[in-house]
Design a protein around this nucleic acid. Structure first.
Lengths: 117, 117
DNA sequence: CGTTTCTACAACCATCGGGTTGCAGATTAC
DNA sequence: GTAATCTGCAACCCGATGGTTGTAGAAACG
C-alpha cells in the first residue's frame, strides 16, 4: 500500500535539489541496502571530509538518507521510501500528460470544429 | 520500447536541478499536453517576465520542455520522454535496493556466521 | 506608416551552493 | 593517561542562481 502523504513544495524542492548533484547521487547509490560510515564515504571521494559531510547533510534534510550513531562512527542509510516518493511525483506528470492527451482526443472526436480555450 | 540512451552526469544534474523549483514544476505542469506561450506563462506568476523566461530556459536546457515559434510568440511544450527518463533513473535506485537486499538475504541464508565486508 | 505586443538579452544585485581550512568534542586503541 | 580516529561546526572564498530593471528587435494591428 502506497503512503498518501503529500509533501510540501519546500520538501519537494529539497528532494530534487539533493538529487541534482553527481556526488550526492553516488553517495545515495553506495548506501542503498548497505549502511556506510561518514568517514568511509569520505575516503571514496577526492574532496575533504567536511565537503562529504555537507553532501550527506543535504541528503539527510531531503529525507533520502538517515544517520545512526554506532559508537564513535555515524552510519548513513538510504531511505528507499523517499526515493519512491520522488518517483511517484514524476509519475504524476506522466499521468497528467495521458489525461490531457485523452481529453484532447475526446474533444476532437466529439466536436472537431470547436476549439477549447 | 524504452529508449536506452544513458545521459551524462551533467545532464542528470540539469534535469533534477530544473525540477528543484516550485515555479518551474508549475510551468511544467501547465504545458504538459497543451502548449502555452511565454507571455501567457508570464502572466500566471507574481514575478517579472524575464524571470519566467529564465525558468523556461532552465527547463529547456534540461530537455524537459522545448520552444517553438508561432509568429511573434513562442510556444512552450513539455517533453514527456524526458520526464519519463528522470523517473527511470529513480527506478534504478529502487531496483538496486531490491538487488542488494536480495543478495544480503541470500548471503545470510547460505552462511549465517560469515560477514561480507 | 506608427503603435502595441511578444520576446530576448545585458547588467546588476543579493543570496545560495559547494568547496576549503582550522578547531574542538567524543570515542576507541594502546 | 595519551594518542589516534570519527565527527561536527564555524569561517571563509568564489562561482552559480534567482530575481530585478532597462533596452531593443520582430511581428501583428490600426
Amino acid at each position: 500500500m502506497v503512503v498518501e502523504t503529500v509533501p510540501s513544495q519546500a520538501e519537494v524542492d529539497q528532494i530534487f535539489h539533493a538529487l541534482a548533484d553527481a556526488t550526492r547521487r553516488d553517495i545515495l547509490e553506495r548506501v542503498i541496502g548497505r549502511e556506510q560510515s561518514v568517514s568511509t564515504l569520505g575516503r571514496a571521494y577526492a574532496m575533504s571530509l567536511p565537503a562529504v559531510q555537507k553532501h550527506v547533510g543535504v541528503l539527510e534534510r531531503a529525507g533520502l538518507v538517515s544517520k545512526h550513531r554506532a559508537g564513535r562512527e555515524q552510519h548513513v542509510r538510504a531511505e528507499p521510501e523517499r526515493i519512491a516518493l520522488a518517483r511517484e511525483l514524476l509519475g504524476r506528470y506522466e499521468e497528467l500528460w495521458r489525461t490531457r492527451i485523452a481529453a484532447m482526443d475526446r474533444l476532437l472526436a466529439e466536436d472537431p470544429t470547436e476549439q477549447k480555450e
